[in-house]
Design a protein around this nucleic acid. Structure first.
Lengths: 138, 138
DNA sequence: CACCGTTGTAACCATTATAGTTATATCTAA
DNA sequence: TTAGATATAACTATAATGGTTACAACGGTG
């Protein structure tokens, strides 16, 4: 299956770096830690900016968190970076046959269960914040 | 983001149809209810067979469940159909910089949180079985 | 036995998301 | 003004998905 994009884990990496570091970091330095191309980093940082998690100083460089590490949960990051139209993790096949009892009902009944499962996952993500993560680094 | 494949919802559809129907169904009939190509249905039914949820009578046609609808959970179907190598929902970027405190630790610390979130979702899927779904059809 | 409808697969294709890359415009402080 | 940084567009290779065609194999029925 197609897994959830590494944008998410890279975003957590970026935010952790900024939180841990005392001085301001450039995109190129972050790219070196994540081990990818600086443009990929800037792209993700753009999403984090749009979500209000980050501010970046253009021109001179350097980024800072807009919330404390305690106030940034994994769910915040997940939402900032996994930009889905309807933010639905599961996709249900479209246009089943309405003349069939199953086809007529499957979408609504199943969708409600899948939303519950998605919520369970997101609830768990919301229980971990950046501060929790960082405290476990050695 | 790339969402979870409709193979999953189609598989639930297929199993529901078989569970609801008294007589044996052909792949073509099921394809008509799901509203897709019969080969897509056969492909998914192949996965459900491999997972031990279904048996199919080749030649003559017709399929039957190998477990009762009470004993088939959404998690069973999800696992049967979302064949991932390591069955990890989340993907973490590879080869971060080991010379950096964050790069050195991010993978293990984050992976453990993500596994928890995935488990929360799967646990919820396991709480719903085919019988639950069917009983809600009108 | 021959036929016909079915299942089982392989092969191919168009579409889409991802992650990386190059190139260029813009910004800010020195 | 310049150096170094961000912002963004455009392009690429790769991979998963879902649909399609084609064909082999199976198994009752006539």
């Amino acid at each position: 299956m197609k897994q959830i994009s590494t944008r998410f884990s890279m975003a957590v990496h970026i935010l952790s770096l900024i939180a841990v570091s005392s001085n301001e970091l450039t995109g190129d330095f972050i790219a070196g830690s994540v081990n990818t191309n600086p443009v990929v980093i800037r792209r993700i940082m753009g999403m984090l900016k749009k979500a209000g998690l980050l501010e970046v100083r253009p021109g001179v460089g350097g980024a800072a968190l807009l919330k404390t590490p305690e106030d940034i949960t994994l769910l915040d990051v997940y939402r900032a970076v996994n930009v889905i139209d309807d933010s639905q993790l599961f996709r249900v096949h479209e246009d089943p046959n309405e003349n069939c009892q199953v086809g007529r009902n499957i979408e609504m009944v199943l969708q409600s269960e899948l939303s519950e499962a998605q919520s369970a996952m997101e609830l768990r993500l919301a229980q971990t914040n950046l501060s929790n993560l960082i405290s476990r680094f050695e």
